[in-house]
Amino acid sequence: MTTSRRPSLVMTGRYAALVAGALLTTVPFFMMLSTSFKAQTFVLQVPPQLLPSHPTTANYAQAWASTGFAQYFLNSVVVSVCTVAGVLLLGSMMAYAFARFEFPGKKPIFLALIATLMIPGMMLIIPQYLVAKDLHVLDSRVGLVLFYVAGQLAFTTFLVRGFIVTIPRELDEAMLIDGAGPFRVFWSLILPLCRPALATAGIFSFLGAWDEFVWAVTIIDSPEKRTLPIAIALFQGQHATSWGMVFAASVIAVLPVFVVFVVFQRQFVAGVQAGALKG
């Protein structure tokens, strides 16, 4: 009887810990969402209400209509989408080369590439700025995309290569016998089979580009080229007391991330599970 109760107590403790962790991470988000629907009169109400008694969408209308906010949102969309496209294209090609081809210095180059993952991003700000200056991409969206892609290539290459090496080489050889070239094998065989890994890498790349602040605020000076993280920081400074409007702007910034994760959730989970089992 005692032994049968122990597993149930252990499971109960685990579920309690999971519920506590879920509440700890979701309550701040729901408070932000709730505050975004509150008029300024009810924002600092004590005790705070998780569900506003007089919800309003005026904060969203005011936030979206504020100076340049729609342009900042569009800039973030363009930069993030271009970053994902560049990272997935270049990263998958590099992963394919490291997984399927033999060339001089292959192992040292791959190890050096992986070693860059251990370098803190803040240490690269000054060197990156000097390179961007020499390339004449300061104060441009191109400068953001180029360095976002470069910064995420190592992780994407590592992730996708680990997936490609598990694909049987016999499939490659069968296509080569039929007359297909290496690029056709890559495009028609490797990429379709790597969809879970590509989806996982794409989500991480999108999040990295969408939320990045330090590099963007370092090289972007023109107001019309700012991205959402810069806009939110400036928006909070301009409307420090209008917390409903500030949180409404933050919710707008979070929505694309939520949509991307929901749309690619299955591929993301499959990619993570495959990496855990095959790594």
Rank of each mutant, 00 (worst) to 15 (best):
A201G: 11
F42N: 15
L130R: 14
P7D: 01
T241E: 15
Q273W: 00
V77M: 12
I203H: 02
E224S: 14
D172G: 10
V257H: 05
V81S: 06
K38Q: 12
I252F: 08
T116A: 07
G91Q: 06
V262R: 11
I252A: 12
F247R: 13
V79C: 02
R195D: 00
Q49W: 00
L144P: 07
R6C: 00
A248V: 08
I119V: 15
P7V: 03
F158S: 04
R141T: 03
F30C: 14
P48Q: 12
Q45M: 13
I109H: 01
I190Y: 09
R100V: 06
V19T: 14
S8G: 01
P229G: 05
L228P: 00
R226P: 00
A174G: 03
D134W: 11
A115F: 03
A20D: 02
V217F: 08
F101T: 01
G162I: 04
A201F: 07
R161F: 02
L176Q: 14
V257M: 13
K278Y: 01
V46E: 09
A216L: 03
K106P: 01
A58Q: 15
K107V: 13
I203V: 13
G179V: 06
Q236P: 00
W187D: 06
V217Q: 11
S4L: 14
T25W: 13
T12G: 15
A99H: 09
T3Q: 13
G275Q: 08
Q152N: 14
V185P: 00
K225D: 00
V79H: 05
Q238R: 13
K225I: 06
F69Q: 04
T116Y: 03
L33A: 15
T3L: 13
L50G: 10
R195G: 06
F183I: 12
M93T: 03
V272I: 12
H239K: 10
V87T: 15
T227D: 00
Y96N: 11
L277E: 11
Q71G: 12
I220S: 02
G121C: 03
L176S: 11
R100K: 11
Y72R: 14
V79D: 02
A248I: 04
A95T: 05
P120G: 08
I177M: 14
T83R: 08
S4R: 15
F73N: 03
A253V: 11
A58F: 05
P108V: 10
V77Q: 08
G121E: 04
T26Q: 09
V78Y: 04
G151W: 01
Y96I: 02
A99L: 08
V81N: 03
P168M: 07
D139R: 08
L189I: 09
L111P: 00
Y96C: 08
F30V: 14
Q267Y: 13
E224G: 01
V257D: 00
A58T: 13
A233W: 09
T116H: 02
R100E: 07
A17C: 12
V254Q: 06
I177T: 15
I126F: 14
